[in-house]
Nucleic acid binder design. Structure first.
Lengths: 251, 251
DNA sequence: GAAATAGTTCCGCTTAATGAAACAATAATC
DNA sequence: GATTATTGTTTCATTAAGCGGAACTATTTC
């Protein structure tokens, strides 16, 4: 109504109108909801659609909130809330596998551990929440980076890569190969690359239309984790990932 | 980079940059992240802050995603994902109270039931997910509307109000009085107003900086639900509401 | 307290938003 | 299936607003 300041207020008004109508709005409905003239609404909707803040339902002219907004909020969400949302699932994994389970999230051009669940027999976790997971030596990071834009991967590769153990693969080409392998297999493995004697698996978590923003995995002493078949672990983790995806998106 | 289309692309770029930096960005950091000139970034940040899409951390000049974005997503989120997030909590309530528990959400100028959990001895729920909860005869709706802008309340009151039972209060003034009572007490009660012989309680759920968007409550046959003290139920529900709030926001 | 860095304001230039109106495409009605 | 009503798209002269370099102020650093 009182459209005094900038264009953003109009965009925001349109987004508000559409957000509060779960079934979407047509151009004319948006027009009535906002009180803006026809031509204007048409242009605003088109722009919002172009940047991905709106999507069209089916292929009709009905507009709903777009995937890019969801992505914004996932990336911006506080670790606490994500932790709360995935904790029960991680606990389930721990119970079934008897190993530490974790969820990591993409954060700019880094990946950080967000939540972990530790078997109670164990004193210390190998993955503390908040820890920065390096692209070249952490399954959690590989599972995420493998499905990012090449430009983002390259930005991540710009950073110094520490040789944590003798098995750490620091060469950029090797890392790119690893990511390719992850894409092919659908999950990532890190053996003795970050912490000595530690093995870890991770699978990507796809969020609605926003792509891969999280990963979920397990980590533990190689000697113990090796008792599982890779395929079996991958299956377990994939199920967990789907569940997380459903919980965080709107499956 | 390739800023060809409209201003929205720039706004979106700024939001992206800030979203992917969980600790927020200063003006100059945003400048570097987006490649935009100083004066421009200053203006963009100011506009985004004005509409509520950005907030300043503490009172420094560090920008993070603002509450209005969260509100957008909560209103736009699919019922499914919310259902998944609150289901365990509702189950807990059902277990403790032995009565049907539900969560409702504001949706435009209506309130709709989103998720329910039913005690297994019971065949049918009184509140089916998706059901439209009328402002004048449902505790779930009153708990939410009581804390909305007056203009929204008036819009909701524009709609026809059906007299479901002899106890249904259809007069607009009565409804406004009811809402005032809810604000005072902090919870809403509906006795025999929507479904005959049915009693229900609901408390508002506050989301981060976005206000009251949900309510959580219980519903059951008056004869049975009356065994509880109002104060006790209110306490139980309040605890549940706080828990939901924490789960959905980032408390 | 000097120097460097970060944030704000100014202002002429330019571009893009504006919205009424004409036009096109659907949907509704007879 | 022809007519009417409704909804979506395009156009265009007018106008407002975004633009960003540069000057300026506040803050931090040394």
């Amino acid at each position: 109504m009182s459209s005094a300041k900038g264009i953003l207020f109009r965009y925001a008004a349109v987004l508000d109108a559409i957000a509060s109508s779960p079934n979407g709005l047509s151009l004319t409905e948006t027009m009535h909801a906002t009180g803006l003239p026809r031509g204007t609404v048409h242009r605003l909707l088109a722009s919002l659609h172009d940047v991905g803040y709106l999507a069209t339902l089916d292929n009709r002219k009905i507009y709903v909130l777009g995937p890019r907004l969801a992505k914004l909020l996932h990336l911006g969400a506080s670790p606490k809330s994500v932790d709360a949302a995935v904790k029960p699932l991680l606990d389930g994994l721990v119970e079934r596998l008897g190993e530490t389970a974790f969820v990591a999230r993409l954060s700019g051009d880094r990946v950080e551990s967000l939540a972990t669940s530790v078997p109670n027999r164990e004193g210390q976790a190998h993955v503390h929440p908040g820890r920065d997971m390096p692209i070249h030596a952490a399954a959690s990071a590989k599972a995420i980076f493998a499905f990012q834009e090449p430009s983002l991967i390259e930005r991540a590769l710009k950073r110094k890569r520490i040789r944590y153990t003798d098995d750490t693969r620091v060469d950029a080409r090797q890392v790119r190969d690893d990511l390719e392998a992850v894409r092919r297999k659908g999950y990532a493995v890190c053996s003795n690359e970050l912490d000595p004697g530690v093995l870890s698996y991770a699978v990507p978590v796809n969020v609605a239309g926003a792509g891969v923003l999280y990963s979920v995995g397990v980590v533990g002493l190689s000697a113990r984790l090796e008792r599982y078949e890779e395929a079996q672990l991958a299956l377990e983790l994939r199920a967990a990932a789907d569940s997380i995806s459903a919980r965080l998106s709107g499956g």
